[in-house]
Design a protein around this nucleic acid. Structure first.
Lengths: 276, 276
DNA sequence: CCTTGACTCTCCCATCGCCGGAGACTGGAT
DNA sequence: ATCCAGTCTCCGGCGATGGGAGAGTCAAGG
């Protein structure tokens, strides 16, 4: 029988860890002196410890390891767990790879421009209720008139709105005859009325930037965003949204200048596109 | 100004997280009501939050992010930090890849044999003092006689030994004229004497298995170990060690049968070999 | 046999980036 | 004035250890 220090040295596992495994029921010492509480391990338990370490290397949690080590696990069940873990590790490899390519793209930007004007980030957008009108308008700038229509249509229900939004439904850039939707995000449900449609924007993942300042430099934000999308191997996967944050409902205008968020729904290039 | 809930909804960041960032000094609300303690954020702070989220995505710690966001970081310093992080992420990718290949190899074994006889694990072996004799002996089995020589040479210093070890110095399998070293690991330094050498085994990474039972089935353990090394793309990087654990010093022989650990120093194939 | 010194015990606290809940208070709408 | 949703602070927990305090134990040497 080995005292914990000797067992620890043989196995190259810290004493603290051995005690923790004992407490967790993962590896109970072959004998515990009742009076002193000293733990005594048998050399035979080294094999058991190896089994634990091997599973830990596969990034199973100690809880999972405890299950896998219980007597009543068949080779078939073990295989199943290993395959599951394989899936998980593969997914994490992909995520890490994506993360790394985002980092690399960022390094390239900083080396080229020696500055980071725009921070592009990936965001999960939840389902979002919206009250809006959708029309083909003469040009981007003409979208402003639609908000009045929505406000009129909603009447007192305007109390429920939050952020004004524009949604560009065209699949490519158009100078004129722009298929635009304009309206407001809603806190709660609201009745549709008078040409104003109430519906849900679907949940999606989007690349997003914040643009501070006047609209006529919004192009630069779009440039940065689209470059990011291209260089990180994403594809546009839905209509682009613009959120006008400076007039968001609970905002007092103060002296803040315009703040706009641009959101472009994306999927990894190569992945199937679900939403239209 | 936005209350924390609105800011949270806009940014898709939880309220808890925002409070945590406030406390960590990462993102202090533009205004805090002195009386109520309510936090009020400016929409302009969305850009700042985006910056934080982008850096977090690169797996910087919040502490590092705080540094990177402080005013006095030049683009050059930022580049340096990003490159450092790039190295780190690349290393982790490699580690994950190795881990995954170990898992895959294990899955293959279980599918072929429907059992796992031997657990092979990677171990970091620290520098280890040893007292030993090295001789070319007639055959593997003849190594036993060397332990007597070591014991005689050490005399009373035998009190300091722990595990008996054999080290096979041949670079390939040999039936006869085996270049063998036999001796004992030492707890403390001890004087060399009478043909017994005291030296340090170098620190190394090794693939290891535990073999339970009689020596004549040790071949199976070697088989499993060598297969594991090959299929995980490692190379043998030093002399093989065998630890005879059943007679380790603090062990009372009891009725335990033999327990042997085989350790093969390895490096990833393709990596440079340092130790001889 | 007793002292010493190395070892071991339990218990508590810290890590990191949050999440959950309790209990008290606030703000804005009715 | 009332109500409810929102917000506040404080406390605890997560997972797998590591660090350290303070008390007890083991084995060898004097």
């Amino acid at each position: 029988m080995l005292k914990i220090g000797d067992f620890s040295a043989l196995a190259q596992v810290s004493i603290k860890t051995l005690r923790y495994y004992d407490q967790a029921g993962l590896l109970t010492p072959a004998h515990v002196d009742e009076q002193s509480g000293y733990r005594y391990y048998s050399v035979r338990q080294l094999a058991q410890l190896h089994r634990i370490l091997a599973l830990r290397d596969f990034e199973f949690s100690l809880e999972e390891i405890a299950e896998l080590l219980s007597e009543d696990v068949t080779a078939e069940q073990m295989r199943g767990m290993l395959l599951l873990q394989q899936k998980e590790l593969e997914q994490r490899m992909r995520d890490e790879g994506d993360r790394l390519s985002r980092l690399n793209s960022r390094i390239r930007v900083i080396e080229r421009e020696n500055e980071m004007e725009y921070e592009v980030i990936l965001k999960n957008l939840p389902k979002q209720k919206i009250a809006s009108v959708r029309e083909v308008v003469a040009a981007y700038t003409a979208v402003g008139s639609l908000y009045g229509k929505v406000a009129n249509g909603l009447g007192p229900a305007m109390a429920n709105v939050t952020v004004p939004v524009a949604i560009w439904h065209d699949h490519e850039y158009k100078e004129k005859d722009v298929d635009a939707e304009a309206g407001f995000y809603l806190r709660h449900d609201v009745a549709a009325a008078d040409g104003v449609t109430v519906h849900d924007l679907p949940e999606t993942t989007a690349a997003a930037v914040i643009h501070n300042g006047s609209y006529h430099r919004l192009r630069e934000a779009y440039d940065a965003l689209l470059k990011w999308i291209a260089s990180n191997d994403y594809q546009i996967a839905g209509p682009i949204r613009e959120l006008y944050l400076h007039t968001a409902k609970p905002v007092r205008q103060d002296d803040e200048t315009y703040v706009t968020e641009i959101q472009v729904p994306v999927v990894k290039a190569g992945a199937a596109v679900h939403a239209g």
